[in-house]
Simulated assay, not measured.
Amino acid sequence: MNKVFKKSLVTVFAAVTAVSLFSVSASAATPKMYNFTNYTGNETVSVDLQGDYTKFAKLEDKNGEIDLKNYTVSGDENKTTVTLKEDYLNGLENGEYTFNGYFENILNTYEFTAYENVGVSIPAGEDCEFYNLTVGETKVDNANYEVEKTSGGFVITVNSEYLQTLPENTSFFAHYYSDSMCCITLQVEKQISKPATGSEVTNNTSTTGKDTSLVSPKTGVNSYVPQIICVMLISAGIFTSCILSGKYKNKKN
């Protein structure tokens, strides 16, 4: 009866583990998202990425890998700062851009609890390389566990004899190397001004020391005064004609 109960418990645990690992695998496949500071036409833009900067491999956009002359990389073992140069930024039109940043040989850690006769799946890419297994900071001897490489990562099965020597629910840590990719977005918001053409005066014309509250285009006539004078003369003529006509009728009567 105990054996049947144990098998049932192992089966239930395996099913729950599979469901949870599916969720973990799906989330692990989602790259980390970062944002450059907005570019408005002044200076450069930078972003801080999580990862050893000496492991940073390349930066890509939709057209492929970006030449290293267009950006710089700096930082330490925990932080990577990518800075886009002004010459590259000035060649971009206003809008949103997406970049992919790639790291090589990042050491990943996956924590799990081992159970008797149950292999635990560690989600990872096909090109990942398994490093070791530890309990805390203590390395587990290779003879105490088995590692199977799969298309989705690794399956680690800890030997039952070794498990019995450890406290219940001991945490294991699987370490493996892999490439890592992150997404970075950039918003370009340069202020675009139209150059002056012919006799037009744009709002960007330098007017240092001058009052620019009223700016009119030069057309050879500074105002509508001639047109107003013509209208006034015509109105005066009509008004005078009316008066004279009235006086003529009065005399006739």
Rank of each mutant, 00 (worst) to 15 (best):
E126R: 09
L107V: 04
E148Y: 11
V147G: 04
L107G: 02
P123M: 00
T138S: 15
N94K: 00
F130R: 09
L92F: 03
T134V: 04
E129W: 04
N144T: 08
E148W: 07
N142F: 14
E104G: 00
D141F: 06
V135P: 02
Y102E: 05
N132R: 15
N90E: 14
E126T: 13
Y97Q: 00
I122R: 03
T113S: 07
D87V: 10
V147A: 11
V120S: 11
E116I: 05
V140L: 10
N90P: 06
N108W: 12
A124M: 01
G101C: 07
T138P: 01
L107I: 06
N105E: 12
K139W: 06
G91A: 07
Y115V: 07
I122N: 01
I122T: 03
V135Q: 13
G101I: 04
V120T: 13
F99M: 04
G95H: 03
Y110E: 13
D127Q: 13
G136M: 09
S151L: 12
E137R: 10
E137I: 09
D127F: 03
D87E: 15
E148P: 10
E137G: 12
V118N: 07
Y88F: 11
T113K: 13
G125W: 02
G125A: 01
Y88M: 08
N132Q: 14
Y102S: 05
Y115T: 12
Y88G: 09
T150G: 04
L133Q: 05
P123T: 03
G101R: 01
T138K: 15
N117P: 02
T113C: 03
F130K: 03
N94L: 02
E111T: 08
L92I: 02
T150I: 10
L92S: 01
E126D: 05
E146F: 08
E111D: 15
D127C: 02
K139S: 14
K139R: 12
F103Y: 12
I122C: 04
F130W: 11
K139L: 13
E96L: 01
D141E: 13
V118A: 09
Y110S: 12
S151Y: 08
T134E: 07
V120E: 10
A143V: 10
N132I: 04
E146S: 14
G95Q: 00
Y97T: 00
L92T: 01
I106T: 14
T150K: 05
N100S: 15
D141H: 11
V140H: 12
V120W: 09
N144K: 13
G91W: 08
N100H: 10
F99N: 01
G91M: 09
N105H: 14
L133T: 00
E126Q: 10
N132D: 15
Y131P: 05
G136R: 08
V120F: 08
V135C: 10
G136C: 09
Y97M: 04
